[in-house]
Design a protein around this nucleic acid. Structure first.
Lengths: 218, 218
DNA sequence: TGTGTTTTTTAGGCTTGTCTAAAACACATG
DNA sequence: CATGTGTTTTAGACAAGCCTAAAAAACACA
């Protein structure tokens, strides 16, 4: 059984591993969790003893098979609670993260099974991220960042990667929420910013950074 | 801001204070929480420094005005979550306690306000206990234990005081759940046990102890 | 009212999760 | 391939929350 803190570290290591085959560095974990490298080293030893990560001194850390399972269950709980908060309790999608961060650590398999059922077995959370099932299986929607689209390309927003309240409020304000139709009108080469048309109604300019965090279906 | 452990101690002290004007003893708290007297003394000092209890060495502890407010908010959360678990997630009432024990510590005023709204502002939890409002106000249903009823007295079950799963399953089995109609048929003087008629259908014998934990409307 | 019993507190220790400062290591670069 | 820079680990400390064992206070009752 993992503690709250252990679950948080494991989840973070899992997320930092996504998309690379490289081990995760101590500093990267410390930055993400706002702790210090020394604390991370301590915790990695504990997680390693419990078999959920593999670790070589000075060489970074990888999530083990078993650790992956555990991490996906935490992520499953987090995303199910986010669906609950938005769909049932009418939270704005920028308000859910901190609360889900707490709720994800509640220990009760029955609770999660019943919550899943109550919500109608959702496949995606309010940010468009896939919800793993009880055995850890999930399928991401095929998707591409606006920053990687050619000019003229269009599609429907399926995911928003930055979960900070400030970013989500901005996305909401320009109307680029999940389900919105977006066409890439133009790209400024010198800073990578984009001009986009939203829902065939209005065009806005977004920075390169923003365009890297809004994903449309492929 | 109180920690999980501090909230648990405070809630326990509050419950042990109900119905008496005497201070609560260290041992009583230790017994309830399955900790040792020494741990209780440590914690009482912390709570006292935070101003939520008043304390004299060797003389027991009382919940302060401010502590009462805090305790009632924890109780409010606990009971709202119980309603959610039973009404929305179809938990049996003997399954809710442990989970609610965890959920009651989630910190988010918005969450509780929205949950309350979502549930339709319930006044009582599944065990018949009143749910305090945001300012700590609540009204218990006028009620009396079966053990204090005269022979021939009848009424509807409004509360069940023992929250252990075993007891609740027993109550369920004999059909004496909340809302059931009960008439006291006879009392055996030598052990205080009762013969009762449930929902005008069947009579059962219950021990004195059981009769002290089933309450009907007055 | 003195004395034995029970309750409570103190003293000291352990684990978890955090920190700072210093030492050890890795790695890029000249 | 030596060295300097940045990263990671170790060493040692601290707070929270728990424990056991022993000392102190309260209480019960002869």
């Amino acid at each position: 059984m993992l503690s709250f803190a252990e679950e948080n570290y494991l989840k973070t290591i899992y997320h930092l591993s996504e998309g690379t085959s490289n081990p995760v560095s101590t500093n990267a974990i410390a930055d993400t969790l706002n702790t210090r490298a020394a604390s991370v080293t301590d915790m990695i030893k504990k997680l390693s003893n419990k078999g959920v990560v593999t670790y070589q001194k000075y060489r970074g850390v990888r999530v083990s098979e078993e650790g992956q399972k555990a991490a996906l269950q935490v992520i499953r709980k987090h995303r199910l609670w986010e669906v609950f908060l938005v769909q049932k309790l009418k939270f704005n999608w920028d308000e859910v993260h901190d609360v889900a961060e707490q709720l994800e650590h509640i220990k009760s398999p029955l609770l999660i099974r019943r919550l899943d059922e109550f919500l109608g077995y959702p496949k995606y959370d309010p940010h468009g991220d896939p919800i793993p099932d009880e055995s850890g299986e999930f399928k991401a929607k095929p998707q591409v960042a606006l920053s990687d689209c050619k000019i003229g390309h269009d599609g429907v927003v399926v995911a928003v990667k930055d979960a900070s309240a400030a970013f989500l409020q901005y996305v909401d304000k320009i109307g680029a929420y999940i389900g919105a139709k977006i066409r890439v009108i133009d790209r400024l080469e010198f800073d990578g910013s984009l001009e986009i048309l939203i829902d065939n109604k209005k065009t806005v300019f977004i920075s390169k950074e923003v365009s890297e965090n809004i994903w449309i279906e492929e």
